[in-house]
């Protein structure tokens, strides 16, 4: 008996988004990263094109990284006090992009000035040739001043700027449009709102092909099933032809995984001082690999060993 053909044919396709610009493209980056482009579900190469390989961005903070767990402090060392040096070390650790988070700009977390933040971004640009993700501090009012300045300072570099939300999108959309950056559209764990934010960005004139979706990430054991199914639903819709959900995903893996108590102080029997640091690495890597199965296109990560493990897994799955 012949085996029936179970290959799924999809009508839609995930958008391809390119981040970074080399000299001939008007920027100063030495590499660019393309994400998305899949015409089928993750890693099902027999059905269609899996698109571009998932990329890994290494998370760098402008200041205040002393709150990071010990294992991460030990892995990165002194460079955590200098975003430029940190970015350099991250590039050596195998980063495809640098995700620079301007945490210190938050009014409650240092309230760094817009000028100081711009200088940090310039330092990082000078230090590495990788494309940049620039993430605001999360305080709406401050971000509405900060992001325009960052956008202007990096004009031509084709950065990915975060984030437009349902409540606050006009300013960041306007500057990304003016300075030709890519945009992260953030939504709080709801596939409908994810689509709504995309529609809102489109309504104010932003090309939906230049949007990367951030449907909120949850770590293993902390809402993974929830975010997994949201990504899965959005991806099904994209492959089904819904242009308003055809944006590639960015997942904030490092931040979420290292919040888990299992990552910091594992409450399990048999955990010793010696193997404790491995737990966070495993938690981060496992979270990342799970999300890859749900269609993650761009992972933001923290620990060099976790990055290495996930890279190996991506290689194995795309070989």
């Amino acid at each position: 008996m012949a085996i029936p053909d179970v290959v799924e044919k999809w009508a839609g396709k995930v958008n391809t988004v390119v981040i970074g610009a080399k000299a001939d493209q008007g920027g100063t980056r030495t590499s660019t990263v393309a994400i998305g482009g899949a015409t089928t579900l993750p890693f099902l190469t027999f059905e269609g094109s899996p698109g571009h390989r998932p990329a890994i961005a290494v998370e760098v903070w402008d200041s205040g990284a002393s709150v990071w767990p010990e294992a991460l402090q030990a892995a990165w060392g002194d460079v955590m006090n200098s975003p430029a040096a940190w970015a350099k070390k991250a590039a050596q650790a195998g980063a495809d992009l640098i995700c620079l988070r301007l945490v210190g700009a938050h009014p409650d977390l240092g309230d760094r000035s817009v000028e100081a933040c711009v200088q940090t971004v310039k330092d990082v640009l000078a230090a590495v040739g990788l494309p940049l993700i620039l993430w605001g501090c999360g305080a709406e009012e401050k971000d509405n001043k900060l992001l325009p300045a960052l956008s202007a300072a990096t004009k031509g570099e084709n950065c990915l700027i975060a984030a437009a939300t349902e409540r606050n999108y006009r300013t960041v959309v306007a500057v990304c449009l003016a300075d030709k950056h890519k945009l992260v559209a953030e939504s709080p764990c709801d596939v409908n709102i994810a689509k709504q934010v995309n529609i809102l960005c489109g309504d104010v004139g932003f090309p939906l092909e230049d949007v990367v979706m951030f449907p909120t990430t949850g770590a293993l054991g902390y809402g993974m099933e929830y975010v997994y199914s949201i990504q899965e639903r959005a991806r099904f819709a994209a492959l089904g032809g819904d242009k308003l959900l055809a944006q590639p995903f960015i997942c904030d893996v490092g931040y979420e995984a290292w919040r888990a108590k299992e990552a910091k102080a594992p409450p399990f029997e048999g955990v010793t001082d010696e193997n404790r640091p491995r737990w966070g690495v495993m938690w981060e890597a496992a979270t990342a690999v799970d999300l890859l199965q749900a269609g993650a296109d761009l992972l933001i990560m923290r620990h060099p060993d976790a990055i290495r493990a996930v890279r190996a897994r991506i290689d194995a799955l795309t070989a």
Partner: peptide, 8 residues
């Protein structure tokens, strides 16, 4: 009907 409103 409401397309195109509110563009930047």
């Amino acid at each position: 009907e409401i397309a195109g409103h509110g563009a930047v």
